[in-house]
Design a protein around this nucleic acid. Structure first.
Length: 826
RNA sequence: GCCGGGGUGGCGAAAUGGCAGACGCGGAGGACUUAAAAUCCUCAGCCCGCAAGGGCGUGUGGGUUCAAAUCCCACCCUCGGCACCA
């Protein structure tokens, strides 16, 4: 309920007229058009394209305004910049709108794009609009299909039946990455599982390469860590437990363990309820109980199943397997604490050395056998699993060995005897890309009864989305009910065939959209190979950290795969990454409609102009941390720009004196050059808040200098000019207007970024701090070039320092050049 | 539970071994005004003091150092990620 309690300040210019004037002019003059062969080092600076939800949120402003300032700064710094923009235009909300309100997804999406394009233009961003990409247009998605076929050809796209993650609300399967804490990432509905035929991309083949971040120039450590955790590399040993006595086709039950050293401690075996061997290994007398258990597990949501608080449950299968190291019979159980999708889906139960197994063993009265002795262990039963280091006991030939060596020794032994092998297991799964929805790229596959699964011939692309479709949510793709779409001819035998009815996950679009920006309307190639050679990879990428293991991981996978297919010449899509933080509501809470704390940027832009909103967002705190919106805060930005407006428009001749005061002039120039240095470093490093603070200090200093009337016209001009150049990336409209008003040649945005003079950066006098025993007792103004001896002498002579030194013995005098003298007494 | 970021005035924050609180918001007082708004000036971490000055102060407790918001150890809170991963 944080209604706008604060009144908005008034700005001294007409914000709507000023914004419109310059936006039209820049547009007309093609100021931000991309010249692929233009002068200057190429610089591809990309911001994550938005989903066209219909309205520009303050979060979009927070993502794009600082990004734009950085882009403009790079341009002024002499780089040849590509800064494209587009729309992630396929996806569920469009289809949901169609279901709810009967608007066609295409109509809804394109209308939203038009509106958002207008809103984004109102920010005054220097995007290269000519390169715009809209994913839902056939000119884009035909290449999605083409790329899918390349993956298919290279064995990187495949179809299989698997218990896929299902969102009952979105009525589609999801990728593992789209599940957050057992819920759909998009609508927070608890997910279930469904056995379905699905298309996958073989991301796991690249697991090892995706863990190699050496090709990146500058990514946040946090994102690397999240990707590392997601991939979840785990080296261990796969061991086969003999089941040949059961007379099945399968002779062994494979388990994966990272603790092969505990192999002698196995007292039971657990199979996930969905494990394919569960039915085969169940004895007739146990069948009813086991089937009931499996059925119950199937019904439970992942949230219920994965709760670690739950008591362990399971069912005895009535059969046994044989431990390969000691020949013991081991009881087989199914229990839902084993998950089917990880490793082999079966776990060896070592209750003495794994807490989960311990809990299960307690529950079912299974034996606990210690094989790694805790220090000073006398054979007493354990109260909980012992997971630390120790020495092997009850482990045959390995007794007496420290278990750290036992891990290697047993792995060697198993490999020698052919009963096991070292393997690396990954947590990451292959990427499930088929969706049972309409508003996406149709998967270009044809099913022929005679010829099987066939790719649509490239010459027949694109497979267009039919327009006349019924959008009822049924759990299957609306395309499946469109006979005109489904019915086709087999490209091989010419007989009747059916099309694939699923569409492609929109994260495929974003895995390569940055390549399409180079030549968005090219009908011959997905991207222009010449331009790609020159312009890729992306030099700087900015966007939210929420895409750490989805978009960013998929895109890295995609590019590595394209590289291996010979389609691109680089292996990492984004060299540098910067994640902006999240803008919160005025109440410091996450913005949401239900909290009523959502800030609508349009209102502020209308009243205060784009530049005020931009500057405030950059000033409110470090960009990567985000922070709460403040109406009072934005008034501060408006007031500052008001002062700037008035100060910069002044005619230096009005106050400039004929005989200027050299010291005052030097002080003003020094302030200007110090600010140039600071702002150059800060804006380059995305530290906009401190850059603006430094500019506020400079404008304050200039105001003081004006009142003192000691600086000459030339110095004053230099100060004004430098200020406006620094202001240009931050407040582009205002800077341009003032640049014009002060008689300078259009455009401020085409000026070179100003350089500072290092000799002017250094101050002439410094404040020397005098400490006694680390406490500040005096401050002296001394020449910057003061010698150590002089500094110490003056410090000792300070009356207040003397008072604290008194008659005590001076033990040490620490001198920090240019900063302080610390007299240590006592 | 594990991993990572963060904790500094009334608020957003700055300072990454050397003057804590730059810059801004909010606040108080003053100028201008018939008045208000806007604008400008002054004050402003807390405590004692008329002042000069002094004491205390960067989540908590300890440590290293001439000197710690900053480095080290332990803990608390908070935000994010992962979580029965064998």
């Amino acid at each position: 309920m944080t209604q706008q309690t604060q009144r908005l300040a008034e700005v001294r210019w007409d914000p709507r007229a000023l914004d419109a004037k310059w936006q039209a002019r820049w547009d007309r003059d093609g100021l931000y058009r991309w010249h692929a062969d233009g002068r200057g080092e190429k610089w591809y600076e990309l911001t994550m394209y938005p989903y066209p939800s219909g309205d520009l949120h303050i979060g979009h402003w927070y993502a794009y305004a600082p990004y734009d300032a950085h882009v403009r700064f790079q341009r002024m710094s002499g780089k040849n910049v590509l800064a494209p923009f587009g729309f992630d235009a396929f996806g569920l909300p469009a289809e949901n709108a169609a279901i709810r309100r009967g608007i066609h997804p295409h109509t809804w999406t394109m209308g939203n794009i038009e509106n958002m394009r207008r809103q984004i233009r109102s920010m005054g961003c220097a995007f290269t609009w000519d390169q715009e990409v809209v994913c839902c247009l056939p000119e884009f998605y035909r290449w999605n299909q083409w790329l899918f076929l390349q993956f298919f050809k290279h064995g990187l796209a495949y179809r299989t039946r698997a218990p896929a993650v299902w969102c009952p609300s979105c009525q589609t399967v999801l990728a593992n990455e789209q599940v957050v804490a057992g819920r759909c990432e998009r609508c927070e509905t608890p997910i279930t599982r469904r056995e379905m035929d699905q298309w996958f991309l073989r991301t796991t083949r690249y697991a090892e390469q995706l863990l190699d971040f050496s090709g990146l120039v500058d990514w946040p450590e946090k994102i690397l860590l999240m990707q590392r955790n997601w991939i979840g590399r785990s080296p261990g040993v796969e061991v086969a437990f003999d089941i040949s006595h059961l007379g099945l086709e399968e002779k062994g039950l494979r388990v994966f363990t990272t603790r092969v050293d505990t192999l002698y401690g196995v007292t039971f075996m657990v199979l996930a309820p969905e494990h394919p061997l569960v039915p085969k290994l169940t004895s007739p007398e146990r069948r009813a109980a086991v089937e009931a258990y499996v059925e119950e597990a199937r019904r439970k949501s992942d949230i219920e199943r994965l709760s670690t608080e739950r008591e362990k449950t399971g069912e005895f299968l009535g059969t046994y397997c044989i431990n390969p190291v000691n020949g013991e019979r081991v009881q087989l159980f199914t229990a839902d604490y084993a998950v089917a999708w990880y490793a082999t889906g079966a776990v060896m139960g070592v209750p003495a050395h794994d807490q989960r197994d311990f809990d299960f063993a307690k529950q079912y009265g299974l034996p606990v056998r210690v094989v790694i002795a805790p220090p000073d262990w006398k054979g007493a039963p354990l109260a909980q699993a012992y997971v630390a280091e120790g020495v092997h006991v009850n482990s045959g030939q390995f007794d007496g060995m420290p278990n750290s060596r036992g891990v290697e020794a047993m792995a060697d032994h198993l490999e020698r005897t052919g009963k096991g092998k070292r393997v690396i297991t990954y947590r990451m799964r292959d990427w499930l890309i088929s969706r049972q929805r309409y508003w996406g790229t149709p998967i270009p596959i044809i099913y022929c009864e005679k010829c099987g699964t066939l790719p649509v011939p490239e010459g027949q692309l694109p497979v267009l989305l039919p327009e006349d479709v019924e959008f009822k949510p049924t759990g299957d793709s609306p395309l499946a009910r469109h006979e005109g779409f489904m019915r086709t001819r087999c490209p091989q035998c010419g007989g009747e065939a059916r099309r694939e009815s699923n569409t492609i996950d929109t994260f495929v679009d974003s895995s390569w959209y940055f390549l399409r920006y180079l030549s968005p309307h090219d009908l011959q190639h997905p991207w222009d190979p010449e331009l790609a050679r020159k312009w890729l990879p992306v030099d700087q990428y900015t966007g939210g950290a929420e895409h750490a293991v989805m978009h960013l991981l998929y895109a890295r996978f995609f590019i590595k795969a394209l590289r291996d297919m010979g389609l691109v010449g680089f292996g990492e899509p984004f060299l540098r990454l910067y994640n902006q933080g999240v803008i919160l509501g005025e109440d410091h809470e996450k913005m949401s409609k239900s909290r009523g704390n959502v800030v609508a940027p349009d209102d502020y832009v209308q009243q205060l102009g784009a530049d005020v909103v931009r500057c405030y967002l950059m000033f409110l705190g470090p960009w990567d941390r985000g922070g709460p919106w403040s109406t009072a805060g934005i008034n501060g930005a408006a007031r500052w720009l008001n002062r700037v407006w008035e100060l910069m428009a002044r005619d230096p001749a009005e106050q400039g004196r004929d005989e200027a005061n050299p010291e005052a002039e030097r002080a003003l120039r020094s302030a200007v050059h110090r600010t140039l240095k600071k702002v150059t470093g800060d804006v380059g490093a995305f530290q906009f808040n401190t850059a603006i603070a430094a500019m506020m200090e400079l404008s304050n200093a200039m105001q003081d200098a004006w009142e003192e009337r000691k600086a000459g016209v030339a110095v004053w001009r230099e100060a004004q000019e430098s200020f406006l150049l620094m202001l240009a990336p931050l407040a582009p409209h205002l800077a341009e207007e003032l640049w014009e008003k002060t008689g300078r040649a259009y455009s401020v945005h085409q000026q070179p970024w100003p350089k500072w003079d290092e000799s002017l950066v250094a101050a002439q006098t410094i404040t020397l701090v005098v400490q006694v025993n680390g406490r500040v007792r005096d401050r002296l103004t001394v020449p910057a070039g003061i010698t150590e001896a002089e500094a110490k002498e003056q410090a000792m002579a300070s009356a207040n320092a003397q008072k604290h030194i008194g008659s005590a013995q001076v033990r040490q005098v620490v001198y920090v050049p240019g900063r302080l003298v610390n007299v240590v007494v006592g």
